[in-house]
């Protein structure tokens, strides 16, 4: 019978690290102090257990840092401490019952294992903020965040660990290049997953579906983009969408007519990406015709020709 469950081991590890002297504790110090590590079958199993625990601690918001000190003994050279600010409550955060219901809904929406787990543990944390019961009003609404792109999980990991990634990206015009990016944030916009990432000092938007290779995490770390930088990039995208206008005509009482709001046959649309808009319009076939811009008209024309050529 083991002396400690995994949760107990993790908790003890955290407490020992919190009580550590300024120079931190070595791995051996921790193995001696935490009863759970005595249960490991052998040295190898103990090392693996410790590696997993470090990841879990970080996933749960404990900022585990490594301090390198001069030592003849390799095992003593890396010492562990918990970073400042790890145990600060989120400042002034307080939720009412409707807001708690919204957070629950946001957490429940995830179909991605990794994010569903994080959202759920985050929710547990937030539930300690004074609210006991969530509003029931939203219980029959079921939003879903489907994150099935293979690129999703490695990018999420790169974001939390601030690691540079390398990937092949193919633009809508077919131009394919190897890109080295510093991922900052994943967003779902208009049903499309968008990665906000820094490339050579500049923050840009990338569509996950245009990533055509595996995402490779490098060992190189970067300084994460600040909240201001991210906010600016998001505001820029909104400004771009506001500026990009397409005019279309839909057949009255057709499916497109209802889809686009069913108020008039002449509709102005704002869009983020011309190729994505073209896809949405192509689906409605002859029910939609593009008045402008010219580029969109041509794109739809050439896409239709491509369909015919592919199916000849």
């Amino acid at each position: 019978m083991p002396t400690q469950s995994p949760a107990e081991r993790l908790f003890t590890l955290t407490c020992c690290l919190m009580a550590a002297p300024r120079q931190g504790l070595s791995k051996q110090d921790l193995f001696d102090a935490v009863p759970g590590y005595h249960d490991a079958r052998n040295t190898d199993a103990r090392e693996k257990m410790f590696d997993r625990d470090k990841d879990t601690l970080r996933d749960m918001g404990v900022r585990l840092e490594i301090v390198h000190v001069d030592s003849f003994d390799d095992a003593e050279a890396s010492r562990y401490v918990i970073g400042r600010g790890s145990f600060d409550w989120p400042a002034e955060l307080s939720l009412n019952s409707n807001q708690l219901a919204l957070v629950e809904l946001a957490a429940k929406a995830w179909n991605n294992q990794l994010f569903a787990t994080s959202a759920k543990s985050g929710l547990t944390r937030l539930k300690a903020r004074g609210i006991v019961e969530a509003d029931r009003e939203l219980s029959f609404i079921s939003p879903r965040l489907l994150a099935r792109h293979a690129a999703f999980s490695p990018l999420a990991e790169a974001i939390s660990e601030s690691k540079v990634v390398v990937l092949e990206y193919r633009k809508a015009d077919g131009d394919q290049k190897l890109r080295e990016l510093e991922p900052a944030k994943l967003r779902l916009i208009e049903g499309e997953w968008v990665l906000l990432a820094r490339e050579r000092g500049q923050i840009k938007n990338f569509l996950l579906r245009r990533i055509v290779s595996k995402v490779k995490l490098t060992e190189e770390q970067f300084k994460p983009a600040s909240d201001e930088e991210i906010a600016q990039a998001e505001a820029d995208l909104i400004a771009l969408v506001a500026q990009q206008e397409a005019e279309i005509e839909v057949l009255e009482d057709s499916e497109a007519f209802w889809h686009f709001g069913a108020q008039a046959t002449r509709i102005t649309l704002h869009y983020m990406d011309e190729a994505l808009l073209a896809e949405d319009l192509l689906e409605f076939g002859s029910e939609v015709s593009v008045i402008g811009p010219e580029g969109l008209k041509e794109r739809i024309h050439s896409r239709l020709e491509a369909v015919i050529a592919t199916h000849a």
């Binding site: 790890s86 995830w110 959202a119 985050g122 974001i159």
Partner: peptide
């Protein structure tokens, strides 16, 4: 240890993305 840790980046961002979506 005097309180629980703040939310991790991933905990926070998974909730934030969910809220963005809502």
């Amino acid at each position: 240890l005097a309180g629980p840790p703040s939310l991790s980046k991933r905990q926070l961002s998974s909730i934030a993305i969910g809220l963005d979506y809502l």
